[in-house]
């Protein structure tokens, strides 16, 4: 087991109170697994991703344990996490491309980053060059300023950088959403290649676009309003989803080949609950077509088939 998370709960501090952004998330990743994390905006997927590496000022750790390769990550301790960041866990943030300092040459930035992690720049240099070659970036790129790179080039640079020290876990947060379809494909393929070459052991790919995940992820985990809904191998999620939310979500996606004049797709009526004062029990209850009394209790995240986890009372009932 590469990553093992138990009851991870993280809230957001706001002026109006606490936002229950992530509630009792428990799941695990095996070595070499690329897990897609999908859900609508505000479902807690980014909270889950960032909490594994850096709790920002407004995020509050409530409870839960995170084991990476058998070692506990002290995610509540900002200082304590320092020795894990970048070396064990690495993150490509949502707007990584624009996060590069525009006044520094890229090479200089890489240098500083590596020094800050107490590694030897010269020792790493040959490996850095090999990886630049791999993603087809010329080595001159180190002498350039970020503004001189195209969007796709920047994204590749960020990917090389964040995996340079061979972290055990890489979290990629919406790295494709600002890209064109063609570049999107190249970036996603690169993720898989990095895994195959063992630059990273396992990955969490966060995106709202399930069709991207279906191309690259081994498994997909779906979240709704801060709760885990379902996790299963990619094929299973797409063809045999069991959680009502996943089913409705998948069926609402337009695909090439489906026309309005031939088949009308339907969205999910209603909107996600506010997480300041979340409803008790299953948070999808209000929009769920099969909800019943039992759903006022929080459903556990149970493994119904092998590797197929679901949090839905109705499914448990049918399975029993």
């Amino acid at each position: 087991m590469s990553l093992n998370i138990e009851n991870l709960t993280v809230y957001y501090q706001t002026l109006k109170g606490e936002v229950h952004a992530l509630e009792d998330a428990s799941f695990s990743l095996t070595d070499g697994e690329i897990m897609g994390l999908a859900g609508e905006s505000g479902c807690g997927k980014t909270t889950l991703g960032t909490s594994l590496i850096l709790l920002n000022g407004r995020m509050r750790y409530i409870r839960g344990t995170v084991l990476l390769d058998g070692q506990e990550l002290p995610i509540w301790d900002n200082r304590g996490m320092d020795e894990f960041r970048f070396k064990q866990v690495s993150l490509i943030p949502q707007y990584a491309m624009s996060a590069m300092n525009p006044t520094r040459r890229i090479g200089k930035m890489v240098h500083e980053l590596i020094e800050a992690r107490h590694e030897d720049y010269n020792e790493i240099m040959p490996e850095l060059k090999r990886r630049l070659d791999l993603v087809e970036l010329p080595q001159e790129v180190l002498k350039l300023y970020p503004i001189e790179l195209s969007g796709g080039m920047k994204q590749r640079m960020v990917m090389v950088l964040s995996t340079l020290l061979n972290p055990s876990l890489l979290i990629a947060d919406e790295i494709t959403s600002a890209l064109d379809v063609s570049t999107q494909k190249a970036v996603v393929e690169m993720l898989a290649e990095f895994r195959d070459r063992k630059f990273v052991k396992s990955m969490i790919v966060i995106t709202h676009d399930i069709s991207i995940l279906s191309q690259v992820a081994d498994s997909i985990m779906v979240m709704y309003a801060g709760q885990l809904s379902e996790k299963a191998p990619t094929e299973t999620i797409i063809r045999h989803a069991r959680h009502p939310y996943t089913k409705l979500l998948i069926s609402s996606l337009p695909k090439v080949g489906i026309k309005y004049s031939e088949e009308i797709l339907h969205g999910i009526p209603g909107k996600p609950p506010l997480l300041l004062d979340p409803p008790i029990g299953c948070r999808f209850r209000d929009r769920c077509p099969v909800a019943y009394e039992k759903c006022t209790q929080v459903p556990p995240f149970l493994e119904l088939d092998k590797d197929h986890f679901v949090a839905c009372w109705k499914e448990f009932e049918e399975h029993a």
Partner: peptide, 9 residues
């Protein structure tokens, strides 16, 4: 995703 298809419809 869950609301975009309705606008499209």
């Amino acid at each position: 995703a869950s609301t975009r298809i309705d606008v499209l419809n």
